[in-house]
Amino acid sequence: MQEIEFGGYLGILCRDLLASFQAESLKVALDIDADEAFLKPDQAIPLALIANEAMINALKYAFPDGRSGRIAISFRHTSRSLLRMSISDDGVGMPENRRPGSLGFTLIELLAEQIDGGVTVSSDKGTTVTVSIPA
């Protein structure tokens, strides 16, 4: 079975998503800090779908009314047996009624379960979605 170099793919995915939203005159900068990691498709696909969902949520909701901001993507080996992906924005944060339990976050949780991962979502200054999976 082939493997996908996920760190590089994650960068391409997020840059392409940002470019598709920039046409809507968003002023959002993107920081990507990704380790090289080769994943099997059964891990890479759910993780990419999680990144896609979190990134689209940030682009759609974090920066209303033309507000500028930053989205930071991190994908790291935190140990020999654990990978962690975080997608953070410095936007307006989530209102209480959009917190976990919504359709998007339920999807993220289900996808993480498929790959034996855990998810945390915080909304202090902006929003951060973090997924940890076995390496």
Results as ranks from 00 to 15, higher is better:
Glu3Asn: 11
Glu3Leu: 11
Glu3Pro: 00
Ile4Trp: 06
Glu5Asn: 14
Glu5Ala: 13
Phe6Glu: 05
Phe6Lys: 10
Gly8Glu: 12
Gly8Cys: 03
Leu10Gln: 08
Leu13Ala: 11
Cys14Glu: 05
Cys14His: 02
Arg15Gln: 15
Arg15Lys: 15
Asp16Trp: 00
Leu17Asn: 04
Leu17Tyr: 08
Leu18Arg: 14
Ala19Met: 09
Phe21Arg: 12
Phe21Ala: 13
Ala23Phe: 08
Ala23His: 09
Leu26Gln: 12
Leu26Met: 09
Leu30Ser: 09
Leu30Glu: 05
Leu30Arg: 10
Leu30Met: 12
Asp31Phe: 07
Asp31Glu: 15
Asp31His: 13
Ala34Gly: 10
Ala34Tyr: 03
Glu36Leu: 09
Glu36Ile: 12
Ala37Ser: 14
Ala37Met: 07
Phe38Trp: 13
Phe38Pro: 00
Leu39Asn: 04
Ala44Asp: 02
Pro46Gln: 05
Leu47His: 03
Leu47Ile: 09
Ala48Gln: 12
Ala48Tyr: 02
Leu49Phe: 09
Leu49Met: 14
Ile50Glu: 02
Ile50Thr: 07
Ile50Phe: 04
Ile50Asp: 01
Asn52Lys: 13
Asn52Thr: 15
Ala54Ser: 14
Ala54Asp: 02
Asn57Gln: 08
Asn57Gly: 09
Ala58Thr: 12
Ala62Pro: 03
Ala62Gln: 14
Phe63Trp: 04
Pro64Ser: 03
Pro64Gln: 01
Asp65Ser: 13
Asp65Val: 06
Asp65Glu: 14
Gly66Ser: 08
Arg67Pro: 00
Ser68Met: 04
Gly69Ser: 07
Gly69His: 08
Arg70Glu: 08
Ile73Thr: 03
Ser74Leu: 04
Phe75Tyr: 14
Arg76Pro: 00
His77Ser: 06
Thr78Ile: 15
Ser79Tyr: 01
Ser79Glu: 01
Arg80Val: 01
Arg80His: 07
Leu82Phe: 00
Leu82His: 05
Leu83Asn: 03
Arg84Val: 11
Met85Trp: 05
Ile87Asn: 04
Ser88Arg: 15
Ser88Lys: 13
Asp89His: 11
Asp89Ala: 10
Asp90Glu: 04
Asp90Lys: 10
Gly91Arg: 05
Val92Gly: 11
Gly93Asn: 07
Met94Ser: 11
Met94Asp: 02
Pro95Ser: 08
Asn97Arg: 12
Arg98His: 11
Arg98Gly: 01
Pro100Trp: 08
Pro100Gly: 07
Gly101Ala: 12
Ser102Arg: 12
Leu103Trp: 01
Leu103Glu: 08
Gly104Trp: 04
Gly104Leu: 08
Thr106Pro: 00
Ile108Ala: 06
Ile108Gly: 05
Ile108Leu: 09
Leu110Asn: 14
Leu110Val: 09
Leu110Pro: 00
Leu111His: 04
Ala112Thr: 10
Ala112Asn: 07
Ala112Ser: 13
Gln114Pro: 00
Gln114Asn: 09
Ile115Tyr: 02
Gly117Pro: 06
Gly117His: 06
Ser122Trp: 00
Ser122Arg: 13
Ser122Met: 08
Ser123Ala: 10
Ser123Gln: 04
Asp124Val: 13
Asp124Asn: 13
Gly126Arg: 07
Thr127Gln: 02
Thr127Lys: 02
Thr128Tyr: 00
Thr128Ser: 10
Val129Asn: 02
Val129Ala: 01
Thr130Leu: 03
Val131Tyr: 03
Ile133Met: 12
Ile133Val: 15
Ala135Arg: 08
Ala135Asp: 06
